[in-house]
Design a protein around this nucleic acid. Sequence first.
DNA 1: GAGCGATCGTTGACTTTGTCACCTTTGTGC
DNA 2: GCACAAAGGTGACAAAGTCAACGATCGCTC
Lengths: 138, 138
Amino acid sequence: MLELLHSLVHALKSRMHHAMQEGGGDVAGLAGMEARSLGFIARHPESTQGELVRHSGRDKGQIARVVKRLRELGLIEQVEDPVDRRNVRLRVTPAGDALHRDVHRLRKRAGAQALAGFDAEELAAAVALLERMKGNLE
Amino acid sequence: MLELLHSLVHALKSRMHHAMQEGGGDVAGLAGMEARSLGFIARHPESTQGELVRHSGRDKGQIARVVKRLRELGLIEQVEDPVDRRNVRLRVTPAGDALHRDVHRLRKRAGAQALAGFDAEELAAAVALLERMKGNLE
DNA sequence: GAGCGATCGTTGACTTTGTCACCTTTGTGC
DNA sequence: GCACAAAGGTGACAAAGTCAACGATCGCTC
């Protein structure tokens, strides 16, 4: 079971990685974590780095570096939170948004391939089971 | 969905990693991939490195290094295949078998926590769905 | 048997991901 | 003011993954 999950996720990562390389253009310069983080920021504008940390379950140091890289690439920008200046609110730039759409397209395609032959009911069941598992680990 | 899978697997990895560190003793010296590969060899004695590569989906170079490390740790040993001398058949040593049992215990515990509240039917459904997804990617 | 391509494993060089321990800055509650 | 917590940043490192090249061996064919 654990093995199965591992190899499935590895296969998905690998697919996405190759799709991003072959897709060429700007997406090729993004690493997987960077692409995923960009996606989170695009979906949750004005969120802080800490929220990204909590949502992804990754180390905050790692996230700090990923965010730094995305900023250097000009894909996101930071806004100071006037209320609490420790917080850094993140949002995508137009360039980041465009790139995010490209990534999203590839991600959707990879997901669609993995879920080929699933009807809505099965998809919902899969998501529910996975979410219960994730919930069990918190 | 992809995000969900990623974070679930990440959480599982993290659990296993900590369990192996805290468990102390010899398991603490094993990295995750090493532990998983040891498990495969224990479950499939006399298999070749190539079979491990195909089963895990990992790069053969990576597997070669993992196998090398396991050999240096005295956990597995190689037997020359008399028929095809390119093949190297792998099997666990007594020490490797003992360690494998420890790892298996920890893995089982981590899996049990993730699957808490699942009845046999749900478990089977989850495995079936995941296997279909994995199959779709080949 | 010599040549040729395929397969198995090995190695080097490298990038990405993850982990841990510390640090600074800022806010909160005495 | 002070101690303490929280947000983020950095250094150092370990683990994981990727790619390309290589030697050895095998199967096949001429």
